[in-house]
């Protein structure tokens, strides 16, 4: 039933698009068929897979970097009150600094290269991971930690089997919110300072007023995001929360 609803919602969207395009008859809104044709051309020429691959790599690396660093800082801040107080102002600054500012500064300081791009994206994301994970670290159940202590579990076992599972819901929330933010920032980073990737391509299309190209890339990108959600995040979440049954 819900699958049927999802499919009919998709069909309704395409129909609406077709209808609007026919009514407007304007080059700024090509009909779906033209966009799909364009999509196939771009795929056949390998241009799209190449740029998509590069963008996805940047997304993946900066996502992992932001999650790892954000988790460590979040746990530390949730644990040590003084560190929390000390870093709190930095965190507020990090949460509120515009993405554009970090991107420009990273390019200026580290040069127009991939590492600057990835660092810029990660810096934008780390504060939100920290805030979420810190909440989780504060909610750790001391009674379960006592079980680990009284049975003399090793540090690693305590961390992986007793501590980390308590953080899972928070890490999942951070990952979800993280991916959707990182997709968007990576495109801006590419537009501003890289000569490949989807963000760069969109800028090229913009300059040639190639609306079909822009829409084709957008569609593929949206498709990839949906796939990542369905094939990676949701199964992972299902596995981690199996015990809630």
């Amino acid at each position: 039933m819900s699958a049927l609803l999802r499919v009919s919602s998709l069909i309704a969207f395409v129909l609406l698009w077709q209808l609007t395009a026919v009514l407007l008859q304007s080059p700024s809104l090509p009909p779906p068929a033209a966009v799909f044709e364009r999509l196939i051309d771009e795929t056949a020429s390998m241009a799209m897979p190449l740029h998509l691959g590069i963008t996805l790599t940047r997304v993946g690396v900066s996502f992992l970097l932001a999650m790892a660093i954000g988790t460590v800082i979040g746990i530390a801040m949730g644990h040590w009150r003084r560190l929390d107080t000390f870093l709190d102002a930095w965190l507020v600054l990090g949460l509120n600094i515009p993405a554009l500012v970090t991107i420009i500064l990273c390019y200026v300081w580290f040069g127009l290269n991939d590492w600057a791009a990835i660092v810029a994206v990660a810096i934008n994301k780390i504060p939100t991971v920290v805030v979420t994970v810190r909440e989780g670290a504060r909610a750790i159940d001391p009674r379960l930690m006592q079980v680990a202590a009284v049975y003399r579990l090793s540090r690693w076992r305590t961390f992986s089997r007793v501590y980390l599972p308590q953080l899972h819901p928070y890490l999942m929330a951070a990952a979800r919110a993280g991916l959707s933010l990182i997709w968007k920032i990576v495109l801006v980073v590419e537009l501003l300072g890289r000569s490949n990737g989807i963000g760069f391509q969109l800028n090229v299309f913009f300059q040639f007023f190639d609306i079909a190209g822009i829409l084709a890339y957008t569609l593929v990108f949206a498709g990839v995001v949906l796939l990542a959600e369905a094939l990676l995040l949701r199964p992972l979440e299902r596995r981690l929360t199996a015990w809630r049954g």
């Binding site: 009674r143 379960l144 079980v147 003399r152 089997r161 599972p165 899972h168």
Partner: peptide, 17 residues
């Protein structure tokens, strides 16, 4: 070697195991 056995007032099992 191993630590003592301990039973708390509540079962205190790990719900995810």
């Amino acid at each position: 070697g191993a630590g003592p056995g301990f039973m708390f007032q509540e079962p205190r099992l790990m719900p995810w195991l």
